[in-house]
Each structure stands twice: as C-alpha cells, then as structure tokens.
C-alpha cells in the first residue's frame, strides 16, 4: 500500500478509536487496558515476518524472540481479560 492509503486508514482508525473508547463503561476500564494490551501484540505479525524469512540469521532469532514476547501478551492479555469479565455479574433478581 502506498503511504497515503496507509495514512488514511490510520487517521480514520484514530477517529473510530476515539468514539469507541469513549463509549466504554468506566467500570470496564481495567479490562479495556488488558484487552488493548493483547491486541497491540498484533505486532507479532512483524515478528513472524522477521523469523519466517531467513534473509538474515540475526533477524530470524530476533524475530523468534519477538514472537515469544508477543505471544505472552496475546495469550496472557486475552486470558486475563476473560477472567476479569467473567466476574462481572448483574444482581440476582
């Protein structure tokens, strides 16, 4: 993609983020941080590319290290969010 298309996606996504995050209920701000932490580990895509294409051995090992780091976040982040969200219950009527 050319730079302008990428920039367009980025700017629009910032606006989407702005409105979506304001609609998050304050009671769920901690899960919000945990889940944003998990999804920002989509950076694993870059780590996978570095580790998959053996253009440079150093890049490969750095990439694999990045995959481990990002995986900790992805699994840990989603799991801990799930654990927190499971605790939120309504009043039993």
């Amino acid at each position: 993609m050319d730079f302008i298309s990428i920039l367009s996606i980025f700017v629009l996504a910032c606006f989407v983020g702005y409105y979506v995050v304001w609609s998050v209920t304050p009671a769920l701000h901690t899960p919000l941080m945990a889940v944003t932490n998990a999804i920002s580990s989509v950076i694993i895509v870059g780590a996978l590319i570095a580790s998959a294409e053996a253009g440079s051995p150093a890049a490969k090992y750095l990439g694999l290290f990045g995959v481990v780091l990002a995986s900790i976040n992805i699994f840990g982040g989603f799991a801990v969010t799930e654990r927190m969200l499971a605790m939120y219950k309504k009043k039993e009527k």
Partner: peptide, 26 residues
C-alpha cells in the same frame, strides 16, 4: 498490565531491528 506493556514495547524494538536487518523481507 504495566508488565505486559513493557513486553509490547520490547517486541516493537525487536521487530524494528528485525526489519532493519532484513529489509527485503519487510
């Protein structure tokens, strides 16, 4: 959460170096 953030940060650094070392793949 702070600990997890540090991992994302480190992963970004690692990916950045990976891209710099192997720019063709990127």
């Amino acid at each position: 959460v702070a600990g997890f953030h540090s991992l994302v940060g480190l992963a970004a650094v690692v990916v950045g170096f990976g891209a710099w070392l192997d720019p063709q793949s990127f």
